[in-house]
Design a protein around this nucleic acid. Sequence first.
DNA 1: CTGCTATATTCCTGTCAAGGAATATTCCTA
DNA 2: TAGGAATATTCCTTGACAGGAATATAGCAG
Lengths: 123, 123
Amino acid sequence: MLETLAALAEPNRLRIVELLRAGPQPVGEIGERLRLRQPQVSKHLQTLKKAGLVQMEPVAQQRVYELRPAPFRALHAWLERYRELWDARFDELEGVIEELKLRDQVKERSNQPKEKKNARRNK
Amino acid sequence: MLETLAALAEPNRLRIVELLRAGPQPVGEIGERLRLRQPQVSKHLQTLKKAGLVQMEPVAQQRVYELRPAPFRALHAWLERYRELWDARFDELEGVIEELKLRDQVKERSNQPKEKKNARRNK
DNA sequence: CTGCTATATTCCTGTCAAGGAATATTCCTA
DNA sequence: TAGGAATATTCCTTGACAGGAATATAGCAG
């Protein structure tokens, strides 16, 4: 998921994906249509491939790139978990939920000395 | 769209968003739950706010952050344009959708089965 | 093989952004 | 008011990453 988002969060890469939506295309044509230099196109395509967003099929000396459905499906599934947030049909529920959360978080903390905060996690 | 993707394409920021899915939370609690230091939480929240993903409401000295629906809606709308790519059902729906577009709106009658249009294939 | 076309890879450089630490700001309460 | 709690901001350093240029590789035609 993160990899998918990271791959899409780059202007030219997003443009490439948008272009590929129209169908599979060889590297040269992508660069031509998007006015990008060939090496950058290749590099971006490698990134997209590593993220699983595209796959490649060699045709003679050409490499034809094509979108893969899986990451989009995954992204959609992820977004579904937020449907409650943005789908109008849940408007009534939203109010209730919000209220509950607000109540829950109002915790009073009188002066408590903080504990040591050496906990350190990295990714 | 790009801004939304960029904002989400960072591990800790994505974690914050995931956490906020459970409801609005003050900065301190976010940091505590995700084991992040306060300044980084604040900074990430500023980024999310600039991207329109969250909004803030001051409560005493606390700042309660909350997800905003709009970007998620937009992301969903964007993904919809790729549905043809990844939704298996689309193949069956294709004909119907086209028909609906042509006819604008047909509210009432469920009508007779339509014949299949020739499926669009990429070259 | 030779050469040509299409693409990939490498090296370099500049930019940008994230984390750490310290400090500033805001707002409450006694 | 002072002081403390909660959060924001600044400065710094470092790593990642995108673009440019040059070069390497693959695969076809003759």
